[in-house]
Nucleic acid binder design. Structure first.
Lengths: 336, 336
DNA sequence: GGTGGCAATTTGAACGATCAAATCGCCCCG
DNA sequence: CGGGGCGATTTGATCGTTCAAATTGCCACC
């Protein structure tokens, strides 16, 4: 940076300034051991003075890699800023690994696969992070056939035996922790409120509840509630459950949205204390809208992101390690 | 796609298959008028059969452009999924303009400027979207000195006279609409609850309230409340205001977080109706956690994103049009 | 003093695209 | 029948980097 336009500084300019060839400059940067120490310092000084930075397009062309990971950004639905948080962790993890995150949004649903293919074939990205894996997601076999590198956040439900690499959080374990927490606070009639059957992760969380309840010999009949997205429907579902003859005294929930619904349905007593115990899932900041704040099960998003990036970059770089699933444990954040 | 590995298909392969030179293939794609019609169809067939897609790195190298726009993803704070929503609009708008969005997260604060510079100098991105412009943001003059293309979402508060290009939403106008709405519902003591002075957009929203109140000759003394981030502090601030001798009957708020606080502080009457009127800002889905749902002022994020992208791509492509500010109008979403 | 070996450095080629200039083929006109 | 003009196509050079192979210089050893 000496006032001149530094954008046009190439490796040859540096080479000329340092009185060496361009390859030596390249070696200083990429294979320092090959270069004599005082040559290296001379070159480094020239790099510094000229403000040289290697051109990414040229590197990408030569290396046949873009050092970009692609992520489809889904249409924003729901209240959670889950994606916000994961995106941040993912971007940071990618950066630490020398990669960037490249976002795209296919315009039409039937364009989605074409968009993925295009990004790979043009070399715009080296691989994909799939953060929105649905049950029997048809993208997974499609990618595998074309040997397009990808890693899922979330198990490939319905095709667990496929040769897929994923990172996920053990939702059943998390819910079990939630049940234990409520039992510890004296609850015995603990209900589960979550999504209708069919979402892999939702079903798993429900199984976690069943297992924990069974371990303590607690009743589960009539204690399951399901509803779709949205606080309003969650409130209605929880109200129906509370209106039954032997209502639950607490809820573990498939999501914070469900949990907010349960809390609102239960209401507060005269002292401003919640009438029902509630444990949510995901520990979204939105859960803090409810006062007093709810307990919730926190997913280790930073760790998830790091593992996703490390698995994906390995595959991108041609490591033909076998498909691998990584399961992480969530953590109960207990609040008053 | 005929079973062979299509990732290695180059323009020369297509040329050979079609019996023409590589430049003719290039012309078919980029300058169709130069090519004889039947040659063009022959080439297009070859492209189709081989599944050719031009290599992005090679194009970028040659064109000296990456067709990527950079966006720093801020650490997730607060309950809003504002960024989620804007990011989606921005990605879609960029895609429509032939660009991609590239995310990055500088690790340390003092690395931030260096990160920007690096991304430009290496040619990783062509320009930046600044979605988190703070008052007297030092990045703006810094970019301008280096003629780094950028466009702000949000006015450059404190340096409005600088040569900066921005797109923003007229918050004062929005708040005025909110006040009118509350007046229409019979309210006269309408308070403003928002951020402490010093955030440009917050101050502007407060001025909008003052102006609308003044127009109707309504009292404003003692009707201003301020607090920082978070629902809890917002609740406390609203409670203090409601405890005064002549309390407000309604609040217009600087954000949905403030609005949720006001609503929670006001509480519900015996019929489940809110005791105070509330208008929020930003119409975030989090606002729907409150039941009945609040009115809120919605920013036209799709339009903002389109304008940002169109201004930025123009600057990136070397148009030396003068700096330009675009002001858009928000819209009141009135709810029961 | 010639030769082998080795470390340090340089040269040539390649990555895959596009621009600019050169070439080709054809028709028209004097 | 030769040359000008024009549309269609091709050739050569280039973008900035890195790999592989070639070259240089130096020292030790016989």
């Amino acid at each position: 940076m000496n006032g001149r336009d530094a954008n046009g500084v190439t490796i040859s300019d540096v080479a000329a300034a340092a009185g060496v060839s361009r390859q030596t400059v390249s070696n200083v940067l990429n294979r320092p051991a090959r270069v004599a120490p005082d040559t290296a310092t001379r070159v480094r000084r020239a790099i510094e003075e000229l403000g040289y930075r290697p051109n990414r397009a040229a590197q990408n062309l030569r290396e046949r890699a873009s050092r970009c990971l692609g992520l489809k950004i889904p249409a924003p639905i729901g209240v959670s800023n889950f994606l916000d948080r994961f995106l941040y962790s993912l971007t940071a993890a990618a950066g630490a690994a020398g990669y960037h995150l490249l976002l795209f949004a296919p315009t039409a649903v039937d364009e989605e696969l074409a968009t993925y293919e295009d990004l790979i074939r043009t070399g715009t990205v080296d691989g994909f992070v799939l953060a929105d894996v649905s049950a029997r997601d048809r993208r997974l076999p499609w990618f595998a056939e074309r040997s397009i590198p990808f890693v899922c956040f979330g198990r490939p439900w319905g095709q667990e035996d496929g040769p897929y690499t994923w990172v996920d959080v053990d939702g059943a374990y998390g819910i079990e922790q939630g049940v234990e927490h409520l039992i510890g606070r004296g609850h015995r009639r603990i209900a589960y409120l979550g999504w209708p059957e069919g979402t892999g992760f939702g079903d798993e969380r429900r199984r976690g509840w069943l297992r924990a309840m069974g371990r303590h010999g607690l009743e589960t009949d009539g204690l399951i509630g399901v509803c779709g997205e949205g606080v309003a429907v969650a409130v209605a579902a929880a109200e129906r459950m509370l209106a039954r003859p032997e209502p639950p005294t607490a809820f573990v929930c498939g999501s914070d949205t469900h949990a907010v619904g349960a809390r609102l349905a239960g209401g507060l007593d005269a002292d401003g204390r919640p009438r029902v115990g509630v444990v949510g899932f995901d520990d979204s900041p939105a859960a803090s809208l409810i006062s007093p704040r709810m307990s919730s099960i926190r997913q280790p998003l930073d760790e998830v992101a790091r593992r996703v990036v490390s698995l994906l970059t390995a595959r991108v770089q041609g490591s033909d390690s076998p498909p691998e699933g990584v399961m992480l444990r969530p953590e109960l954040v207990a609040r008053e």
